[in-house]
Design a protein around this nucleic acid. Structure first.
Lengths: 250, 250
DNA sequence: CAGTGGTCTAGACCACTGA
DNA sequence: CAGTGGTCTAGACCACTGA
């Protein structure tokens, strides 16, 4: 025990340069066992104490390995009960969602936005529910088309909870994006989104310069901050002009 | 110092039930400063030692807060140099990618798969490069349509590196899915993918029972295991029948 | 060389669970 | 009550960076 604790250790045995750190070894070992089916989904796995004994490392080290496996979705942990192999081969991937302005500029292209609508409206029931407002309450509505080197890339139809951004209607969205603006007023986002292939509405098609039959990538995203709904956005991208990219490793 | 270390502490001051843990407080504090623009992208942020002094917590606690912020993409850390505010408002989201069989069964629906093609082929140059093979090398090719309650949901066109699964051609894919099979032979995945809205090829449209003009959600995914390419898949879903869902919080 | 982050240890207190 | 995970502390050794 205690390879790091050289005061007591007779063999200092310094960690080799490229060797994995102990927490990573524990993690790798458990991943191996999980992927070999040694712990079928739902199975009770060894406790932290057991792993401490098995690997001869401290509990903090085991704990880090387990916490990371939990974050990565491989195991479920319940205080007072134990550690369980996660259900199924669920994998979560990282999908990069960047502010469109930044994304376009990062490609060395020119971004410009055309504001087609920016006004106060009364929320219909469905919308009010999504934004946690009363039916008929005031909401801000913007409709903006983003261009990449002059070509329409995204039609952004957005409703905003006025409580989060009282000044929303006064922002010049040809200079900044709603995403950027809202990130400033509402820190900490939570969002749920869906992605599907669909077609644009007649209006969207016109704004994007496509036909109503052309396939589009449609992303609908509802965003909250500290549990309070901030905004609901429908982002329509002409198919072929826009791809979402991502990666996962597991 | 040391609210937890009650041996020395005059005021035990137990953590309130619902209060955030110290590491979470540090994290929250830094997130607040970041979102308020106190640390513009690229700025050198306080060192661990400085935060230890500022918050009166141990270094491990500060370290955990910073490590999580790093994992979440808010900061970049460089050993020997320091901690920096991350560039841009990049956000990464969790996109759940489950095995289609499990996903369909989880909805209480019936899944069945029709194998339209399962054979060995010679890899053309582009494909060979993607799979790390020589041009003309042997690859396994499968074309399978997955049905949800009898309705075609996904056309799975897949190439597999034979080195990973010599028995691929012998697997009964009406009973298991390629994803499931490959997960067993190739643990630890790495994948890159793109998602776009497009149309199906003529053959895909026929297999899916749609027209070549109907919008489809097309996911192209290249998977590696321990750095070695395993498989390349093109997954075509009729628009409207399939949505990707996800969430992120930041 | 001083400063930084990466990691570990040994021990501790706590909340929670289920017998 | 014993067992489990959640978290913290104080101190340590190390690799790495840049002056």
């Amino acid at each position: 025990m205690g390879k790091y604790h050289s005061r007591m250790s007779s063999l200092p045995s310094p960690r080799r340069k490229s060797a994995l750190a102990p927490f990573a070894l524990v993690k790798q070992h458990l991943m191996g066992e999980l992927s070999q089916g040694l712990w079928p989904p739902g199975t009770l796995m060894p406790s932290e104490a057991a792993l401490v004994a098995q690997f001869g490392v401290s509990r903090m080290t085991v704990n880090r390995a387990l916490r990371e496996l939990q974050t990565e979705g491989f195991i479920d942990r319940v205080q007072g009960v134990g550690t369980f192999a996660a259900q199924s081969h669920r994998m979560s991937s990282t999908l990069t969602v960047r502010d469109l302005h930044e994304e376009i500029e990062a490609r060395g292209h020119h971004h410009h936005a055309v504001v087609h609508l920016l006004r106060e409206e009364r929320a219909a029931l469905a919308l009010a529910q999504q934004l946690g407002l009363a039916e008929g309450a005031s909401v801000y509505h913007s409709l903006i088309v983003h261009h990449d080197n002059g070509q329409p890339l995204q039609c952004e139809d957005r409703y905003v909870n006025p409580a989060w951004s009282p000044g929303y209607l006064g922002v010049d969205f040809s200079q900044t994006t709603p995403t950027q603006h809202l990130l400033e007023v509402a820190p900490w986002w939570d969002a749920q989104f869906t992605i599907e292939a669909s077609t644009a509405t007649a209006q969207e098609a016109t704004l994007l310069g496509i036909t109503a039959a052309d396939p589009c990538l449609v992303l609908v995203r509802r965003t909250s901050s500290r549990g309070v709904p901030v905004t609901l956005a429908r982002l329509v991208h002409p198919g072929g002009r826009y791809q979402l990219e991502g990666a996962f490793s597991r």
